[in-house]
């Protein structure tokens, strides 16, 4: 079966738009959840700056819980919550909610690992200067880990591009949805190739921008 690609361009353009929108918005909100959560995991852990065993265990369990649910199940399972938050359970906006819930805890883990890479000796030196815990987090841990944080957020962004392909289940649209609906289910190979190629390009661009930004931060 041949497809008239001419009539298909607007569709692809729209889908690209939807993907970028979903990934962009979800990334912002997921970071807003993930950054503080990651910092909390680092400071409350045993021997952390504000060591708090019970709180650490709870946060750790919550993050693990959300990270163990396959995205497609999360997507469906939280439909009522989605409706509560964005007023609808279908469409691009509706897809953002599960994407945030999926990516936020993931970002928290990435932030945690970035911050843990900072030399404990540097933290100790800052403590010895009479810094507050707050100052240590915002003036030592985050600035020292920034280059690594950028790389990790890039990983999260690319993870979101992948997850957003499943947004079609709630009518979220996007390139992944187009590839599945037209290319995979209707055997329109050309559509599939074009959409997949576009996804490849998007991922490449995100990774390149992330790498360069990270390098620029490290090179000061």
């Amino acid at each position: 079966m041949q497809v008239d690609l001419h009539t298909f361009w607007p569709k692809i353009l729209e889908a690209t738009n939807e993907t970028l929108l979903m990934v962009g918005i979800a990334l912002v909100f997921a970071s807003l959840i993930g950054l503080p959560l990651g910092v909390a995991l680092v400071v409350t852990r045993p021997n952390g700056l504000l060591q708090n065993g019970p709180l650490f265990k709870v946060l750790n369990a919550i993050v693990n819980f959300f990270r163990s649910i396959p995205f497609i199940i999360l997507l469906v399972a939280i439909l009522p919550i989605t409706r509560l938050i964005v007023g609808t359970s279908i469409g691009t906006a509706a897809a953002v909610v599960p994407l945030v819930l999926f990516s936020g805890p993931f970002i928290a883990r990435l932030v945690e690992s970035s911050l843990l890479e900072v030399e404990p000796g540097v933290v100790e030196a800052t403590e010895a200067m009479g810094a507050t815990s707050w100052q240590i987090v915002f003036r030592v841990l985050i600035p020292e880990a920034l280059s690594s944080l950028v790389l990790n957020i890039t990983i999260a962004a690319i993870g979101l591009v992948g997850a957003s392909a499943m947004a079609g289940f709630v009518g979220g649209g996007g390139l992944g949805d187009l590839a599945i609906a037209y290319g995979y289910q209707r055997f329109e190979t050309e559509v599939m190739i074009i959409t997949v190629l576009l996804l490849v390009v998007i991922v490449q661009v995100i990774q390149t921008v992330g790498n360069q930004l990270s390098r620029k931060i490290r090179r000061h």
């Binding site: 540097v122 030196a125 600035p143 000061h220």
Partner: peptide, 9 residues
């Protein structure tokens, strides 16, 4: 300190 512990950034 032995390993200086300077802020690399």
């Amino acid at each position: 300190f032995q390993h200086f512990n300077l802020l690399e950034s």
